[in-house]
Computed example of a mutant assay.
Amino acid sequence: MTYGMTSSDRITAADSGSWQLGDLTVRRIGFGAMRLTHLADGSPSDRDRVTGVLRRAVELGVNHIDTAAFYFSATRSANELVNRALAPYADDLVITTKVGPGRDPSGEWWWATPGQLRGQVEENLRQLGRDHLDVVNLRVPRQAETGSIAEHFGALAELRTAGLIRHLGVSNVRPDHLAEARAIAPVVCVQNAYGIGSPAEEHAFLDACGEQGIAFVPFFAIAGAGREAGAVAEDGETVRELALVHGVSPAQLRLAWTLSRGSHVLAIPGTGNPGHLVENVAAGALRLSAEEIARLEAA
């Protein structure tokens, strides 16, 4: 499938398909709020521009917003930008957030104890102006080094029972973490770093989530090795070649490949750029052939 900006403007998030997060229906192309608070060089974002991007995302059919209270800069808070742009919230809008990490006013990181998770949940509720959170992911510090998550996840399960949280997920986890969490309460999503070039064990984990009916929500799907700094400067030859064939950007091709990995895969690309938003949403309509998918997996 090939399209230019004129036709991509007519594509909406509905063209990406949908998935159930518990009893909540979301389109497979969502929006990540991490990049709303500041530009790549660390300078403040333009408040009116990024709130406009959020509103435009919803106009384009996006109904899955991923955010967190620890997404903030010296002058901007992602949660409060979401609140300002989108409240009162549409009935079908699903807002997902994360707890576990915290930052003090200077930006220094800390990690919550099980007893501190309620405070983090309540801070998200306050900033977003909500009486409950649709989905809360427990983010673990270091995937390879983190031991049992039972105590932390159990604390969130109690908040779910109390009605502060509707559904639970886990982030930056291993398969054994997921199994441990599922023994405590239902898990609707796994949010892990993933994209072209991920190791075999991450491909297997993604597939296993699909077999269990659990959404897999990749972060850094576009950025890849660039991670928080953004997309790598040079994409591989195969990515560049196939992007040219389809008349799309390498970032769009990366998103399309990610979504091709299974109907349970949800993308949450973030941007403060209105043009990039349209391109990201349009990537949800791009269909790659089996041969192209195989070439990218081998790259």
Rank of each mutant, 00 (worst) to 15 (best):
T2K: 05
Y3W: 04
M5L: 14
S7L: 08
D9V: 04
D15I: 04
S16A: 14
W19R: 07
G22I: 03
G22L: 01
L24R: 07
V26N: 01
V26F: 02
F31M: 02
T37R: 06
T37E: 00
L39G: 13
A40R: 12
P44Y: 01
P44H: 03
D48T: 10
R49A: 15
V50H: 01
R55M: 01
A57R: 01
A57D: 00
E59F: 00
N63H: 00
N63W: 00
D66C: 07
T67H: 01
T67S: 03
A69R: 15
Y71P: 02
T75G: 07
A78E: 07
A85V: 05
Y89C: 00
Y89Q: 01
L93R: 02
T97V: 08
T97M: 11
K98N: 10
K98W: 09
G102E: 04
R103G: 08
D104T: 15
D104A: 13
P105A: 07
Q116S: 07
Q116M: 08
G119P: 01
G119D: 13
Q120S: 09
V121H: 01
V121Y: 01
E122W: 00
E123G: 03
N124C: 06
R126P: 00
R126S: 02
R126K: 05
V136A: 09
P141C: 05
R142L: 14
R142W: 13
E145P: 15
S148M: 13
I149C: 07
F153E: 14
G154L: 15
A157C: 06
T161P: 12
T161V: 15
A162V: 12
G163F: 03
G163V: 06
L164T: 01
L164Y: 02
L164R: 02
L164H: 03
R166L: 07
G169L: 10
V170D: 13
N172I: 02
V173P: 07
P175H: 06
D176R: 02
D176C: 03
D176L: 03
A179R: 10
A179S: 08
A179F: 03
E180A: 14
E180W: 11
A181T: 15
P186W: 04
V188W: 05
Q191R: 12
A193G: 10
Y194F: 15
G195C: 13
G195F: 08
A200S: 11
E202K: 11
E202W: 09
H203V: 03
F205C: 07
F205W: 04
D207W: 04
G210I: 12
Q212W: 06
I214R: 02
F216E: 05
V217K: 09
A221N: 12
I222P: 13
G226L: 08
R227V: 15
R227W: 15
A229T: 11
A229C: 09
D235V: 05
G236I: 13
G236N: 12
T238F: 05
A243K: 07
H246R: 11
V248N: 04
A251V: 13
A251W: 06
A256F: 06
L259D: 14
S260L: 05
G262C: 08
H264V: 13
V265Y: 08
A267D: 10
N273T: 10
G275M: 04
G275S: 06
E279R: 15
E279P: 13
N280Y: 04
V281P: 00
A282W: 04
G284N: 01
G284Y: 00
L286A: 04
A290V: 11
I293C: 12
A294G: 15
R295C: 11
R295P: 12
E297R: 02
A298M: 10
